[in-house]
């Protein structure tokens, strides 16, 4: 068992599924978090390194203030890999030289454009108590202004026109002024 922010993540599950145990994290968000923390797709919770777990906890405790993901420049199209017969030492000296050069001069400021989906949604992530509070505030707002949505919440009935003759059990369970889940 791994505990992150007081939530148990089962050891045997894949990391990206285990993350969905957190209220407010679904499959998409879990996948994004994994990508951010460099956790591969078939990694189980038991295989996570202590560093990864601590960075996960650090990220989830305040997603908005987490440092931005470093963006490393990719190889240029004209890059040609050294031939396999090149001695290792030669490559190592070359790389060492490159790293030295990069340390001396700041990396190129050209930022790679974000993918087509728009901004990174992770900084605005809300989980657990924050999200629950937001939901409760929204319901309280609807109730205060006296709208139909607020009224239906107070009655514990479906809000969006579903049938109530039978079923509607999810609404009976969840729709409250002081919603818990």
């Amino acid at each position: 068992m791994v505990h992150v922010l007081g939530i148990q993540l089962p050891d045997r599950e894949l990391a990206r599924y285990a993350l969905t145990h957190i209220y407010g994290v679904g499959h998409k968000t879990a996948h994004r978090i994994c990508a951010r923390l460099l956790i591969h797709d078939t990694c189980r919770v038991a295989d996570l390194s202590p560093g990864q777990i601590s960075s996960l906890a650090a990220f989830l405790s305040s997603p908005s203030t987490a440092p931005a993901v470093p963006r490393f420049p990719l190889a240029l199209p004209r890059f040609q890999p050294p031939s396999p017969s090149t001695p290792m030492r030669e490559i190592q000296t070359k790389v060492a030289h490159l790293i030295k050069g990069r340390n001396a001069a700041p990396p190129p400021s050209k930022v790679h454009p974000l993918p087509r989906g728009g901004r990174d949604p992770l900084p605005s992530l809300k989980i657990e108590t924050d999200l629950r509070r937001e939901v409760r505030e929204n319901i309280a707002h609807q109730r205060m202004i006296g709208s139909y949505v607020g009224k239906r919440h107070a009655m514990g009935l479906p809000v969006r026109g579903q049938n109530t003759q039978s079923n509607a059990s999810t609404a009976r369970k969840l729709n409250r002024i002081d919603r818990f889940g």
């Binding site: 707002h141 205060m144 202004i145 006296g146 709208s147 139909y148 949505v149």
Partner: peptide, 10 residues
């Protein structure tokens, strides 16, 4: 507080 809602909601 009602700004942005519809008249029918009330």
């Amino acid at each position: 507080d009602m700004v942005g809602h519809k008249l029918g909601e009330f």
